[in-house]
Design a binder for these strands. Structure first.
Lengths: 200, 200
DNA sequence: AAACTTACTAAACGGTGTTTAGAAAATAAA
DNA sequence: TTTATTTTCTAAACACCGTTTAGTAAGTTT
């Protein structure tokens, strides 16, 4: 049955077209400002067509989140490569913060946006993967870290990185009355001092 | 002129009615799910009336943020009372996290929500106040802290607290597969270990 | 009592996510 | 090849949203 094969292929291509366009627009304009109608217009289909391929806007977000987490994981693999455990951990945190700086709108929809129920109730494959990378990086460092257990260590490191980036992205660091460049420098500085603090 | 006095009073009462109702609804349903139309319905006026007292929905948010920051500051004053600098700093961070746990929707609109331009461009009186409290609490601790300067110290402490609460509120800690209670306990634990880390 | 000012709202504008009913095109069967 | 069936798409509508406009009704002043 060659025809139904092609149809399946075309269906997958359409899904890719939609999700690719959605991702572009989420990155450029943010999730909230991107409407189903805008996406439809860009791909030259009617809005209703999108609903033949995705259940609702949340499902679009869910898919884009998946791709974004895959990108984060790739960044980890590329940038946290040291064979020395503590150095690898440092590279990992730097990589995380760098990702936030370079892809603020992706970071936003991954970690800040109110997540669709699907993402929090069912499991979240590509997110788990990145979190696993953190856990696996921490584990061999435990004897050199001033944390009581890996759970606390993971959450502490993640929370510090996330806190810095999300305060920056959502412009709350403005209360410190610093320029954009000064804010970035201070954040980098704060990361480095934190990494020094946690060492035994 | 008694009449214009009364009119002014009535005007202020109307503003209070609107902002009070808005705050209630922001707390119960969140900012995004609360519509001008719903607020108008609850106070039994037409939606257009609200625009005679507030420029737009952002201005409502701005005002509620102000009140929320005032509440946070009150919490600080009540709970961070020690005369011993380091102990006061610990009380402050605990107070911050407690505020987040107890008023998640207020915390959300203060620190997580995309803030209206007014809040970030002009100054933000009640937010400055709370941030000042942090700076003033940190300053006398500097000789006992493992930070190079107060700016880094302030941002580090804030980012850790904010990171924990915002990951919790936006349900990202779910990747750790813990119950709500376990998550809260882990957060408290992480705060305590952090406070231990930063001590000289 | 008439003129003026203030307080309010009905209705509309242009936007949103989403659903429905029906048209058009592609495929299968005759 | 023509008819029947399935698949693919969209126009239009529904129920919301924030906001503006134009006009009504009430209160105040002259």
């Amino acid at each position: 049955m060659g025809i139904s094969d092609r149809k399946e292929r075309e269906k997958q291509e359409m899904r890719k077209l939609i999700i690719g366009t959605a991702m572009d627009m989420f990155i450029n304009d943010g999730y909230e400002k991107t409407s189903i109608r805008n996406i439809a217009e860009k791909i030259e289909y009617s809005p209703a067509t999108i609903y033949l391929y995705y259940k609702d806007k949340d499902e679009l977000l869910y898919e884009v989140q998946g791709e974004a987490f895959a990108e984060l994981y790739k960044a980890f693999e590329k940038e946290a490569t040291s064979t020395e455990p503590m150095e690898k951990l440092e590279q990992l945190l730097h990589s995380y913060v760098k990702f936030g700086f370079e892809h603020p709108d992706l970071y936003d929809l991954m970690f800040i946006l109110r997540s669709p129920m699907k993402a929090v109730s069912e499991d979240w494959p590509n997110c788990d993967e990145s979190f696993d990378f953190l856990i696996k990086t921490i584990t061999p460092c435990m004897d050199q870290l001033r944390f009581s257990d890996p759970g606390v260590a993971a959450l502490s490191i993640w929370a510090l990185g996330h806190g810095l980036i999300s305060l920056f992205i959502r412009q709350r660091i403005k209360v410190m009355h610093l320029s954009d460049e000064e804010q970035r420098a201070l954040i980098t500085n704060t990361v480095d001092e934190y990494l020094r603090l946690i060492r035994k």
